[in-house]
């Protein structure tokens, strides 16, 4: 079974890479197979990890006491579990143009809960903490505890933040000093994008290396070993 798996993986890898030459049936077969398997896998996972434990089981637990022939152990209170399930079902209103308005109710609950939980935390995480991180080194400079390189870093960071924010400040026309500040901001943005692009290249090349490593060592290595046992 393992040998079959290696051969299949090698065939599919080569089929996908064959697109680098030109589009072809092998590539399309591998692509459609990947999409089909992915969709099937995700549906099964979501049914088993999402629908059954969070919708079906609570639903069954709520209605079970009212099923004919089953003693009523739990009271009406168990039916409260049906409220979130019913709200979730309202999303299916989107399937019918006449009932699309039903989506507003679960959406309102989601947005309300999400905003209530996330907004204070996001302000703290992404605004207050980042502002502290930008200005805190200046307290260390004032206390004389920052190294010369640390001072350069702190000043550069403050310039970068101020200029980049200026670039995105559209309430003032970008003329005179504002224009120059925003140009410096663009330079910082480009450096940031360059770093992100370089890291992305590193990540993508790592994917290629892993596949080549598999083809050379696992697949061809297996074939060589197999030939070695014959001759």
């Amino acid at each position: 079974m393992e040998i079959f798996g290696i051969w299949l993986a090698a065939f599919l890898t080569l089929s996908i890479y064959s697109f680098l030459y030109r589009d072809n049936p092998f590539y399309r077969f591998a692509e459609y197979l990947f999409i089909g398997i992915s969709v099937g896998y995700y549906i099964v996972i979501y049914i088993h990890q999402g629908f059954i434990p969070f919708a079906w089981e609570p639903f069954w637990a709520a209605v079970k006491p009212f099923w004919p022939g089953i003693p009523r152990e739990a009271g009406w209170i168990g039916l409260i579990k049906l409220i979130p399930i019913a709200l979730g079902l309202l999303f299916f209103g989107g399937l019918s143009p006449r009932h699309t308005w039903l989506i507003r109710y679960p959406s309102a609950v989601l947005v309300g809960f999400g905003s209530g939980i996330s907004i204070p935390l996001m302000l703290q995480t992404f605004i207050f903490e980042q502002t502290r991180g930008t200005v805190e080194p200046f307290a260390a400079i004032n206390a004389g505890t920052l190294s010369p390189w640390g001072i350069i870093e702190a000043v550069l960071m403050l310039i970068g933040v101020a200029c980049t924010l200026t670039y995105f400040f559209f309430s003032v026309e970008h003329r005179g000093p504002v224009k120059w500040l925003s140009k410096v901001g663009i330079a910082f943005l480009m450096i940031g994008f360059g770093a992100a692009f370089g890291n992305t290249v590193m990540g993508r090349v790592a994917l290629l290396i892993q596949r080549v490593d598999f083809l050379l060592n696992d697949w061809i290595g297996m074939i060589i070993g197999w030939l070695g046992t014959i001759f």
Binding site: A195, A196, N199, V201
Partner: peptide, 10 residues
């Protein structure tokens, strides 16, 4: 992964 390294430095 490489794609999101730059986002993590702040």
């Amino acid at each position: 992964t490489g794609v999101i390294i730059a986002q993590m430095y702040p």
